[in-house]
Design a binder for these strands. Structure first.
Lengths: 345, 345
DNA sequence: TTGTAGGCGTTATCAA
DNA sequence: TTGATAACGCCTACAA
C-alpha cells in the first residue's frame, strides 16, 4: 500500500484543485501565477507523502515514454555492450532509460523488434543497422522519429549516424606497418556489402597502392564457410611472401589468432599483426597485438548528444547529423619494426 | 499518421461497441459469447487496419508493463552482457522486454535505480545484488514483487536466486590441481563480504585441508589499493614455494596475468594457473588457461523460468525458488600435470 | 449477445 | 490566481 499516492490525494488533502498541484509539480508555478504559499504547501506535502507521478499515466497523456530503444546484433558483443553502458550513463542523466534487444543477425527479427519498440512508444532509437533494414529506417525518418545509427550506416539513408573513419583508420594501420618496414602486407576481411567493410578495404588498398606495394586480400565468407579458421590457415600457407597481416574486424582477428595457434605461427616473429578493433585479449597475447581502437565513449557520447538534441527539439529537428570519429591506433609489439627482429635474433 | 488506429475506430467502422471489440481482441470471444460472425469481422478489420493496442493505455489500466528491470554493476562486463543476452531472448519469447541499467558499484545509485524502475512499473526484477542492498530487496519481497537475484546472494534474504555452486566449483578446481601433482597451491582473492567469495575461499580451504596441504591465501582489497597488479607481484615474489595459483574471479585473473607479464613469469612453465570464471582471452594465452566456467545460458534460463513463473501466478507465488547450478571446469594447458614439465624440458 | 459507462493518473484548455 | 473538465486508449463490471 505504499505507492498509491496520486495527484488527487495531494489536491484533496490540501483542499486545492488537481490542476494547481499539477502546475506546481511540473515547475510551472511561477509561469501560471500560483501563489507562493500554495506552491510551498504543495511541495511540502509532496515531499512528505513521497508522491511520485505515475509515469504510465504521464506517458499515455503526453505520448512520451522517456525510453530509448537500443537495437544491436548481440548485446553480449563487447563493442555493443560497451556502447550500451555509456549510452545508459548519458541517458540516465537525462531521465531516459534504455530498452534493448538483440537481432541476432536476423533481418526479420530486426523488423519485428522495431515494431515492438514502436508499439511500446519508445521516444527514440539507437541502432546498429543490420543489412536489409534500410526501408524500415527510412520509414522512421519520414515519421520524424529520432533515430541515430552507429557502427554501420548506409550511404543511401539520409539520417543521423555516428561512425568511425574506417577508411582513414585502416589507412593509418597500413601505413604504420609500412613505416615499420613491412612490404608484403595482407588483409583478411569479409565478403560484405557493409559500407564500413568496404571503407576499410579501400583504406588498405589506397595506402598500399600509394606506396607501390602489392595488394593481397583474403575475403572470407562467414555465411558460407563454417571453418573460417581453416580458410585463414590456407590463405597464410599460400601467401608465404607475407610479412604482415591485418585483420579487419575483431572476430576475424580472433579466428586469425586461432589459425596462428593451430599452425604454430608466432606473432611478430613469424608474421606481424594488426587488428582492426581493439579488445581485451590483444593486450595479453604474446607478444601483445597492435590494434585500431574505436573510441567507445566518444561514440556513445555523440550518439546521445544527437539523440537528445532531436528528442528535445519539438519540430522535425532539421537536417541529419552525421559524425565521423577518428579511431586511434594502439601500438603494441606485434607490429614492431622489422629491423628489431634481426636485432633480436 | 500511420499508427492512429484505436479500438474505437474498429468499433465505429463495424458499428459494434468497443466492448465487443475488446473482448474479441483479448481472445475472450468464446468466453463472452460473441457471435462467430462478429468475431470474424472484427478480426478481419483488425488485421486489415493493422491495429495494435496501445500498450501505454493497457499498462495504465492493468498495471502491467511487460517490462523487466535488469540491474547489474556494469552491463559491459562480459558475464553480465552474456546473461543480458540470454535473458532478453527468453523474455522476448514471452512478450517481455528488458530495461537495464548499471549501478557502477554504487549502492546509492543502485537504490536510486530500483526506485526508477519501480516508478516505471516494471513487472519484475533481475538483479546482481550489490552489497548493502539487502533492505531494499526485502522491501520488494514484502511487496510481493517478483525478483530474481543472480551471481550474488545474501543468506539473510529469503528470496529467489540463481547462483553457481561456488564452494564446490572452487573445490573441484583445487582438487584438479592437486590431482595433477601440485602441492603448494595459492589462492588470490579479494577481501570481501560477498557470499560467493566466501564460498569460493571455503571451497579452496576445505580441498587443501582434506589433502593435508598448506594454505596460502592473498586477499586483495580493490577498494583500497590502486595497484592490485603490484600487490600480486609482491605476493608471488614472497611466496616462492608456490607451484600453482588460483585466481578467484575474472578481473583478479586479468591482473594476475598482467603481473605474470610484468615480472616475466611464464604460465605453467613457472607456475600453474587456474582462473575462476572463464573468459575469452584465457583461450588465447600461451599456454591457454584452465578455468571454472559459469554456465551462462543455464543461469539465464533458470532466472527467467523462475521470474516468469512468479509473474504468471496471480497470488504471491509461494516460497522462494533457489537454484544452485554446477559450474564446469575447462581444462587447458596452464594446469597440466607437473610431470609433463620435467618431461618437456 | 452486445452496449454503457466508470476509472486508471496525467496534462492542458478554458472558464471563473 | 485557481478550478472544472475533457481527453489519452483501454478494460471490465453491470445493464440491457
Amino acid at each position: 500500500m505504499s505507492k498509491k499516492v496520486s495527484i488527487k490525494d495531494i489536491a484533496n488533502q490540501l483542499g486545492v484543485s488537481i490542476t494547481t498541484v499539477s502546475f506546481v509539480i511540473n515547475g510551472k508555478a511561477k509561469e501560471k501565477n500560483i501563489s507562493p504559499k500554495v506552491t510551498q504547501e504543495v511541495l511540502n506535502l509532496v515531499a512528505e507523502l513521497g508522491y511520485q507521478p505515475n509515469s504510465l499515466a504521464q506517458s499515455l497523456r503526453t505520448g512520451k515514454t522517456k525510453i530509448i530503444g537500443f537495437l544491436v546484433d548481440d548485446i553480449s558483443e563487447p563493442f555493443f555492450a560497451g556502447i550500451a553502458r555509456f549510452i545508459d550513463e548519458k541517458a540516465s542523466e537525462e531521465g531516459y532509460k534504455i530498452l534493448f534487444s538483440s537481432t541476432r543477425g536476423s533481418t526479420k527479427k530486426a523488423i519485428e523488434l522495431l515494431g515492438i519498440f514502436k508499439e511500446r512508444h519508445v521516444d527514440g532509437y539507437v541502432i546498429a543497422l543490420p543489412e536489409g533494414l534500410e526501408d524500415e529506417v527510412n520509414k522512421f525518418i519520414e515519421a520524424k522519429t529520432p533515430v541515430v545509427l552507429f557502427d554501420r550506416y548506409v550511404k543511401s539513408v539520409e539520417t543521423n549516424y555516428v561512425i568511425i573513419d574506417n577508411k582513414n583508420s585502416m589507412g593509418n594501420a597500413t601505413r604504420h606497418l609500412i613505416a615499420n618496414g613491412y612490404k608484403n602486407i595482407g588483409l583478411v576481411t569479409i565478403h560484405s556489402a557493409e559500407q564500413q567493410m568496404i571503407d576499410r578495404l579501400q583504406g588498405y588498398e589506397e595506402a598500399m597502392i600509394s606506396s607501390k606495394l602489392p595488394l593481397c586480400v583474403k575475403k572470407l565468407d562467414y555465411k558460407v564457410t563454417d571453418s573460417p579458421v581453416q580458410d585463414i590457415i590456407d590463405f597464410l600457407n599460400t601467401q608465404t611472401q607475407l610479412d604482415a597481416v591485418i585483420f579487419s574486424a575483431n572476430y576475424i582477428c580472433m579466428d586469425g589468432l586461432r589459425a596462428f595457434k593451430k599452425i604454430g605461427k608466432r606473432i611478430w616473429t613469424d608474421l606481424a599483426i594488426v587488428s582492426f578493433d581493439d579488445f581485451e585479449l590483444l593486450e595479453f597475447c604474446t607478444p601483445p597485438v597492435t590494434a585500431v581502437a574505436q573510441p567507445l565513449k566518444a561514440i556513445a557520447d555523440h550518439i546521445m548528444k544527437i539523440l537528445l538534441n532531436k528528442l528535445n527539439t519539438e519540430h522535425d529537428g532539421g537536417k541529419p547529423e552525421q559524425v565521423i570519429l577518428p579511431a586511434s591506433i594502439i601500438i603494441r609489439e606485434s607490429s614492431l619494426s622489422k629491423n628489431m627482429q634481426s636485432a633480436n635474433n
